[in-house]
Amino acid sequence: MLPASLALAALAVALAWPVPLALARAAWPARAPAVALIVWQAIALAGGLSMIGSLLVFGLTPFGEDLVRGLASLLQHLLNGTLPEGATLPHTFALSGAVLLAVHLVLNLMLAAVRASRSRSRHRQLLALLSRPDPEHPGARLLDEAAPVAYCLPGATRSVTVLSDGLLEILDAEELAAVIAHEEAHARQRHHLLLLAFGAWRRSLPWFPIATRALDAVAVLVEMLADDRARRQASEAVLARSIARVALGLDGVAGRPRPGADVAENLPETLGASEPAALRRIERLVSAAEPLGVMGRVTALAASAALLLVPTALLLAPALA
């Protein structure tokens, strides 16, 4: 079982560092945000699986020839209070590590879900008292607040789009419709669940800088996905302009930009992955980059499937053979 354990460890290291780093720096995710989100989820799941699996398989070496027999024998030995021949301290450490890591990750995810749901229900109560229904946009609520904000409060049955008076002041009707379409896309596509999972992952591995990068990347991709939904209803230029206006308004530079300014003309020359999210989204909208081709999509999806299949096979294949 040692080769399987080493292979899983190698995969875990690859998925903990070089692979997510490369994905975070790649340019193609902006051209296929939905596909990129699948790849990110595959990396996170396969990374956890291979990390825990590697420890488990190594720890079980003295107990049996494969995972299934090893687990059965471990249970037997635990019940009898005995240890098999060849069981050493490192094996015990590996087994405890596997159990602790698995419990830690699952508990953190559950805790994050409970916290988010509590925080949302408190927010919903506050909103009921402090906001009023928007007469012009059914389903949206208006906040008496000078900062230009728009956000979506997700709910199990009903999500609310919240707009501030400050937002209505700086956007024209067309731009506002684009913002609302964007927020409704978040709710419809349940983006908060993705952010919840990656947020929990980041919180459970604070010593692991890649988790922060993953959360940031996922947060931007989710925005791009909502932009893609909104641009079916509004033109790219209008959506790009509303992003720029809100970003500037938030900064307190609530100047009155020239109406109908052509955002595309004035872009900085290059925008890399390190640029702030708002600028990257604008650049993506006005440059009208081609969506990723079929070959690219198929390759990325196949790679995601492989990421999940390889650790599973390494864990189970010896038992099935």
């Binding site: 927010h123 956000y151 979506c152 978040h186 952010l195 947060a219």
Partner: peptide
Amino acid sequence: KAVLARFVGQV
């Protein structure tokens, strides 16, 4: 971030 998806985040 887990709670609210804002149209534009911190600038």
